[in-house]
Design a protein around this nucleic acid. Structure first.
Length: 488
RNA sequence: CGGGAUGUGGCGCAGUUGGUAGCGCACACGCCUGGGGGGCGUGGGGCCGCAGGUUCAAGUCCUGUCAUCCCGACCA
């Protein structure tokens, strides 16, 4: 297999595909739009899952699991919701196959038609709220703070590995509360969890904000989002947290008795991040040599390469090094494959994004040093063998910080304030990135901008500085800038 | 779903006016090598995406179909 990656400058889409496939994160499968997540890719996802799950638990949530299939009738109970998802649902109509009477393998058994079709969940609000109806009777039953890790299916017409696949993995939190205020607090709490995770673990800075009406989740009162900026200047919606009001409680008739013994509808939130984060991770950090994984998410943080090849002496030293590093809490492995030469291994580990490589060579050992190579900056240095574990541990933190700093610098350099529509278009075409501009709040100008420039309002940033201005197009007054970008 | 392109060993590709399917990498074995993707030799591996059709003969021509990629439309 050719290990050469298309340079970003030449073709960013192709570069992205090359990274995903050549770093062995994922591959296309036999099913249109569905991918096989390979061990290296899944290992990163598992690190994300584990960390997020811990953060959910720390904020009081528990995990549960609801069915893959949803009765068709459930989808029609919340009008906006069905409209948002109807066009991309996989539908189960039969439950049995039979041998083809003509001898051509198996066919669907027409007698096994389902009375009511089942929808493969595109998201689980409906099945979950149908269940919550049975769980909730009193204010004492609230809040319900449940999360589930699951796969969902959305029959997308155009798919891209990780960024938009027909089936994807995610978590979806679904909470039920006694008051609007409590639900709104939950919505922003989880948005904060996502933002913290993105910055501290993925080293991917994000802007927190609220979606405009046109970009809102189908069935939500408010959709909060974290928006990240990719290397090519396009935005990636990386996580959402929805305040659902009483929409689903009303649709599924979920009520509770309050302290005054009055019957009220329950208030709801839902929030999720998906394997799309993998796409964000790739497009935030990686380079033309391959993937770059932030140390906190790297399944393997350090790889030890024997130079020029494993032998008894080097193996013995490697064993000691492994023990020292593991003792220090570092995820480390030893590449003792004796069929491949060092140069090949270097390139391979760089391609796969392992943050730190230790070169263990006879000459270095005699001098009492080890060659330490960092993936992020592609630099190498000789480090004393004594105290190497501490050095590496500190280096991993430095790399983590460096990646976040670089991503922040890139975002800062690609965030532009503009005050005229001409300038807006010019920045989008020549520079890309986030564009902060005044907007009069009307769906019409938002739509016009989208049609003419392909840019959308990513969000109205939270804690947005208030300032007087005028809409670029209508000239109507505006009191704050909103965040525009072309997006994935 | 519309426009364009591409499907040939695991990967990347060539294959002329139709006439016995090739190359590089990878793989297996052997020898030589050995601090940034080694060298030489030998060898194995193909329903040419799939289904029809034209023809004495189809990887090549025709029709259909499936899949992937790029650009759109769509996209909580």
């Amino acid at each position: 297999m050719s290990k050469v990656i298309t340079p970003r400058e030449e073709d960013y889409s192709q570069w992205y595909n090359d990274i995903v496939r050549k770093a062995q994160l994922a591959d296309h499968s036999a099913v249109r739009g569905c991918m096989v997540i390979k061990p290296h890719g899944f290992g990163i996802w598992e690190r994300m899952q584990r960390q997020l799950d811990d953060m959910f638990k720390e904020t009081g949530h528990v995990n549960a699991y609801f069915p893959l299939f949803i009765p068709k009738s459930f989808l029609s109970k919340e009008a906006e919701h069905v409209e948002g998802f109807a066009k991309e649902c996989a539908v189960v109509t039969h439950h049995r196959l039979m041998n083809d009477p003509n001898g051509n393998g198996v066919v669907v058994d027409p007698s096994a038609k389902l009375e009511e079709e089942l929808i493969v969940r595109p998201t689980s609000e409906t099945i979950i709220w149908n269940t919550y109806k049975d769980w909730i009777d009193s204010y004492r039953d609230l809040p319900i703070l449940v999360n589930q890790w699951a796969n969902v299916v959305r029959w997308e017409l155009r798919t891209r590995l990780f960024l938009r696949t027909a089936e994807f993995l995610w978590q979806e939190g679904h909470t039920a509360h006694a008051t609007s205020q409590e639900a709104e607090e939950e919505t922003t709490r989880m948005l904060d969890v996502y933002a913290t995770f993105a910055e501290e673990y993925m080293a991917m800075p994000v802007i927190k904000g609220v979606k405009t009406a046109s970009e809102r989740f189908a069935g939500a009162i408010d959709t909060y989002t974290i928006e990240a900026l990719m290397q090519d200047g396009k935005a990636l919606q990386s996580g959402t947290s929805h305040f659902l009001g009483q929409n689903f409680a009303k649709a599924f008739d979920v009520t509770f008795s309050n302290k005054e013994n009055e019957r009220e509808h329950v208030w709801a939130t839902s929030w999720g991040v998906s394997t799309r984060l993998m796409g964000g991770l790739i497009m935030t950090h990686s380079d033309d040599q391959g993937l770059i994984i932030p140390p906190r998410l790297a399944p393997t943080q350090v790889v030890i390469v024997p130079i020029p090849k494993p032998n008894d002496e080097i193996n013995a030293e490697a064993k000691k090094l492994l023990a020292e590093l593991k003792e220090a809490g570092v995820r480390v492995s030893y590449d003792d494959d004796d069929r491949k030469r060092p140069g090949f291994k270097f390139a391979e580990h760089e391609l796969k994004g392992i943050p730190v490589r230790l070169g263990l060579g006879k000459r270095d050992l005699e001098k009492g040093v080890i060659e330490v190579a960092r993936r992020d900056e592609k630099t190498k240095e000789s480090v004393p063998r004594e105290g190497i574990a501490t050095y590496v541990k500190n280096l991993l933190e430095e790399i983590q910080d460096n990646l976040l700093a670089k991503a922040k610098a890139h975002r800062a350099a690609h965030t532009t304030k503009v005050d005229s529509y001409d300038e807006f278009k010019k920045v989008l075409d020549e520079k890309g990135g986030f564009v902060l501009a005044h907007w009069d709040g009307s769906p019409e100008t938002e739509q016009q901008i989208k049609e003419e420039t392909k840019a959308t309002i990513r969000c109205v940033p939270l804690d947005n500085p208030q300032e007087d201005g005028v809409d670029m197009i209508s000239g109507k007054p505006s009191k704050e800038r909103v965040l525009f970008a072309r997006a994935y």
